[in-house]
């Protein structure tokens, strides 16, 4: 599904990632953990194609296609989803109309008939039911005046609606209280599936208590310093980043 090979990334002329290798098979969930400044968000942004994050060496293949050659919207239409650490407010645009536009772009790209307003509403209601969410948030302008927890729940909902093949969740657990964390992680669990891979980017292991990863990678100073099974997250929790050869947070 996703092959990252010797990936070097520069931001503002400064190299942040110094050769990342990571292979994510279909249906797998990997966690990328690391202290602040280790390059976690850079990895998320470069996969999604944000301007200013330049690949200087190496490559990223998504379903065999070179991601670097695609614009952010093409990646999204191909099935790359980024759950934002700080979801952006768009005043005056309701969540419903935003998502409808997004879903129809994806459908157009895949050659499926676009949904009209009524069909879309039906489609969204089914997703809301699956995630046990109400539609109140979707009626409001997207992310405007939302609490941290509400923003993250809507990110998970967007993932559910857009049905991506690769979901990158950037610090989805940050700033959530325990109730919100439970809601968000049960949403993520509900969306795990054989044809969907996930990359969970996180600082703490607490999310991983609810969403159990197939693999854990520890990122430090722009390199993956260790990889292992889900028990690596627990080890990290006990000993801290320093012991694991990572720079202390």
């Amino acid at each position: 599904m996703l092959e990252i090979k010797n990936l070097h990334v520069e931001v503002d002329g400064k190299e942040i990632l110094h050769g990342i290798d990571l292979s994510l098979a279909a249906g797998e969930v990997h966690a990328v953990m690391g202290p602040n400044g280790s390059g976690k968000s850079t990895l998320a942004y470069v996969l999604a194609g944000r301007d200013g994050y330049d690949i200087t060496k190496g490559e990223v293949l998504f379903q065999g296609k070179n991601l670097a050659e695609m614009s952010p919207e093409e990646r999204a239409r191909e099935g790359v989803f980024l759950g934002f650490q700080y979801p952006v407010e768009i005043p005056g645009v309701s969540g419903l109309s935003f998502l409808k536009a997004a879903v129809n772009e994806v459908r157009k790209h895949r050659g499926i008939k676009e949904l009209d307003a009524i069909e879309f509403l039906k489609f969204v209601r089914a997703k809301l039911k699956m995630l046990e969410m109400g539609d109140d948030l979707l009626k409001r302008p997207i992310n405007v005046g939302f609490s941290g927890g509400e923003k993250k729940r809507v990110e998970v909902l967007q993932m559910a609606v857009l049905e991506p093949r690769l979901a990158i969740m950037d610090e989805t657990d940050s700033g959530l209280d325990i109730d919100a964390l439970k809601i968000v992680s049960s949403g993520i669990n509900a969306l795990r599936g054989l044809d969907r891979s996930m990359l969970l980017i996180t600082h703490y292991q607490r999310l991983l208590g609810y969403v159990v990863p197939d693999k854990v990678h520890i990122l430090s100073g722009g390199r993956i310093v260790r990889s292992g099974g889900k028990e690596l997250a627990l080890e990290l929790e006990e000993k801290g980043y320093a012991v694991l050869g990572a720079d202390a947070a």
Partner: peptide, 28 residues
Amino acid sequence: SDDQLFYCRQRGLSAEDAVSMIVNGFCR
């Protein structure tokens, strides 16, 4: 903002559609 544009594009909207959507929201 670049953040708004990138957010929309990450969801599959072209840059021009994103601007149009943001402007329409602004004028709602």
